[in-house]
Amino acid sequence: MSADAVTRIKAKRTSSGRVAGGKQGLSRGSTIGLHVGLTILAILCLIPMLVVISTSFSSESDVKENGYPIIVRDFSLDAYEQLIGRSSRTIIDAYVDTVMVSGVGTFLSLFACSMAAYVLARRNFFLRTHLTFFIFFTMLFNGGLVPTYIVITQIYSLQDTFWVLVLPLVVVPWYILILRTFMQGISYELIESAKIDGASEFRIFGTIILPLAKPGLACIGLFILLRYWNSWFEAMLYINRSDWQTLQLMLIRMQQRVEAMFDENSLIQTNLRIVDIPSETLRMAMVVVAAGPMLIVFPFFQKYFVRGLTIGSVKG
C-alpha cells in the first residue's frame, strides 16, 4: 500500500470523518458468473436441507419404501408427534434449559474471551507471550475425561447444577486467538490517543475496541452460541439426579430410545408396527427442531457484518 495512497485517503475524508466510496464494482459478465457460482453452491446446500424438512413431515412407511423425498409425498406429523406428543413437557423444558444455558453462556463467554483477546492483542503487554502460550496450550493438552470428572464432581461439586453446563465451555482458546487477530488490526493510535485523554483500559475496551471489532465479535459470538446450543456432552455426563438437560441431549436420547425398540435384547411393547415407528423421520424432525431456532437467530448476527466502521476520529 503506497504511502501517498494513504495520504490521499485521509485527504478524501469528509469533515464528519466518514469515508466515501468503497470497492469498485464488477463487470456485468463477472457479476453473472459470480451469481451463477454462488447459486449452484446454494442449491447444493439447500437441497439436503429440503430433504431433511420434507422427510420430517413424511410418514415413516413412505420413507422406507420410496427413499428420502425432496418434496413431501405422504404428509404425516408422526415424527413431530413422537417428539412433542407425550413428552411435551420435556421438550419445552429442554428448550427453556437450553435457552438459559446458551444465553448466559454466550454472554459470559463472549465477554471473557473478547477481554482476553484484547489483552493478547496489546503488543506491549509484557506477559503477552506467556499468556498466549498459557491459553493456547490447553487447546492441545487436556488432562482427560476422568481427571476432569474427578475435579468437577469431587472438588467443585458441580454435578447436577446449571453451571456445569456453562462454565466448562466458557473459554475457547481458538476463539480467543481469532478475536485477537481481529483486534490486532485496529489502529493503535486510537488507543494511544484515548490513553492520553486519561481513559482506563476498560473504557478503551468498551468504547473503542468493541465497536470496531463488531464483525469479529459477531462471528465469534455466533460460534459461541452455536456451541452452547448444540452442546450435550456435559449434560450427559454430569446430570444424574436433577432435571437440567440440553435440547441436543434430549433429542439424542429420544433417538436412542427409538432404536432400542429395534434391539432384540429389549422387550418394549408398543402399539405401532415396527415399520411405522418414526425413526428416519424422527431423526430429521430432530434436526429441524434443533436447527430451527438457530436459523432464526442467524440474521441477528448478520446485522453486525458491516463493512469498515468509522475510524475517522484520527485526523491528518
Binding site: T153, L237, Q256
Partner: peptide, 23 residues
Amino acid sequence: VDYVDIPGPEYEQRIQVVINSGE
C-alpha cells in the same frame, strides 16, 4: 436405594468414568 437411571447406550461410557474416578 438411590437408583441412577442411565440410558442404555450411554451406560458404558458413564459407568467407566464413575469407576475410574473412584466415586
